[in-house]
C-alpha cells in the first residue's frame, strides 16, 4: 500500500513536470515578454538590459531550470496587467472559487445521492420518473441560462439576492471567506445553485445506474437471504458498492469546476479564478496564464491522488500489491 502511494506520487511529479514545461512555453515563447513589459517605445539598450535581468539571453534548458526553481518557490513573475506578483493575484482569487465549488459539490452530493438511491430502488415509481425527467433537463440546460434565470427571478423580480459579487468577506490569514458573514452566505446561494444543478443531475444518474447494477449482484441477494433489513441491504451494502465511480467523477468535477467555473463566475461577477483567467486571456497576460496552467495541473494531480487514496479507503481489494 505504501509503495502504491509512492508510485502515485511519482506519477504526480511527472505530470507536474510536463505541465511546467507547457507553462514555461507559454511564459517564454508566446509573445515577447520584453515587448509586453516595456511596451513598443523602449530603446534597444533598455530591451537588452531587461533581457539580461530576465535571463532571456541564456539557453532554454537553463531558463527552464530557473523557471522551475522559481515556480517551486511560488514565483511566477509579475502580471503584465496588474503589475503585482502573479502568485499574489491567484491566491487572492483562489478562496472565492474554492468556496463556491466546494459548497456546490456538497449540495450536489447531499441531494444527488439520495435522489439516485431512491430512483435505483423504485425505478418505475412516479416520483422516480419525475426526478429522471428533471435530471435530464438539469443535464442539458446550459449553465449561463440557469444563472440568468435565477438573477431574473431572485434579483430583478423578487429583489431578495444580490446579482453579483461575494458580499462581505472575512480575512483568515491569506484566505478570505464569505461563509462567516450573512451577505457572504446570501451571495453564495445563486452561484452554488447554478453550479450544482448539473452536478446533482449527473450524480443522481450515476448513483442510480451503478446501484441498479449492484442490486443485481449475488451478494445483495445473499444479504437478503441472511435476513438483513432493507435499510442495511440498500445503504450498507448496495450503496457503498456503488460509490467508486461516483468518487472518480466527483473528483474530476471538482477539479474542472475549480479550473473552469468561468461561465458561472462571469454571470455572477464572482471574483474567482475563472474571472481572473478570462481577464488574463483578454489582455494576453501570459505570466498569469502560465501560472494558472501550472496551478490547475497541480490541482488536478492532487485531486486524482485524493481519489486514488479514497479508493484505497473504500475498496480493500485495491490495497493488495
Amino acid at each position: 500500500m505504501f509503495s502504491l502511494i509512492l508510485r502515485r506520487l511519482g506519477s504526480v511529479l511527472l505530470v507536474m513536470l510536463v505541465v511546467a514545461g507547457l507553462s514555461f512555453l507559454i511564459f517564454n515563447y508566446l509573445g515577447d515578454p520584453v515587448n509586453n513589459i516595456l511596451g513598443v517605445n523602449a530603446t534597444i539598450e533598455e530591451r537588452e538590459e531587461l533581457r539580461r535581468t530576465l535571463g532571456l539571453d541564456q539557453p532554454s534548458h537553463i531558463q527552464f531550470w530557473h523557471f522551475l526553481q522559481r515556480a517551486v518557490a511560488g514565483d511566477f513573475g509579475i502580471s503584465y496587467r496588474n503589475r503585482i506578483p502573479v502568485i499574489e493575484l491567484i491566491l487572492s482569487r483562489l478562496p472565492a472559487t474554492v468556496e463556491l465549488v466546494f459548497c456546490a459539490t456538497i449540495v450536489a452530493l447531499s441531494i444527488g445521492i439520495p435522489m439516485g438511491v431512491y430512483c435505483a430502488l423504485r425505478p418505475k415509481g412516479l416520483i422516480s420518473r419525475i426526478l429522471q425527467m428533471i435530471s435530464l433537463v438539469g443535464i442539458s440546460i446550459p449553465q449561463f441560462l440557469i444563472g440568468m434565470l435565477l438573477i431574473l427571478i431572485f434579483s430583478v423580480e423578487l429583489r431578495w439576492l444580490s446579482a453579483f459579487g461575494r458580499g462581505e468577506v472575512v480575512q483568515l490569514g491569506w484566505w478570505s471567506t464569505g461563509l462567516l458573514t450573512h451577505s457572504g452566505r446570501m451571495a453564495l446561494i445563486m452561484p452554488v445553485i447554478t453550479l450544482a444543478v448539473f452536478q446533482i443531475s449527473m450524480i443522481m444518474r450515476l448513483v442510480q445506474g451503478e446501484m441498479q447494477e449492484v442490486m443485481r449482484a449475488d451478494f445483495i441477494k445473499f444479504a437478503r437471504a441472511r435476513g438483513l433489513t432493507d435499510r442495511s441491504v440498500h445503504l450498507r451494502h448496495a450503496l457503498r458498492n456503488s460509490l467508486l465511480p461516483v468518487v472518480t467523477v466527483v473528483g474530476m468535477q471538482i477539479g474542472s469546476l475549480i479550473a473552469f467555473a468561468i461561465v458561472c463566475e462571469a454571470v455572477f461577477q464572482w471574483p474567482g479564478l475563472g474571472l481572473l483567467i478570462l481577464q488574463a486571456i483578454e489582455f494576453a497576460d501570459f505570466p498569469v496564464m502560465a501560472a494558472y496552467l501550472a496551478l490547475v495541473g497541480f490541482g488536478f494531480a492532487m485531486i486524482n491522488l485524493t481519489v486514488d487514496m479514497t479508493y484505497l479507503f473504500i475498496d480493500p481489494r485495491m490495497r493488495r500489491k
Partner: peptide, 21 residues
Amino acid sequence: LRGKRIGAIFQDPLTSLDPLM
C-alpha cells in the same frame, strides 16, 4: 424468518460476500 429459521447458500461463493466488508 430468513437467516433466522431458513438459511440459504448460493452457488458462487466468490460473489456471495460483500467485497467491501
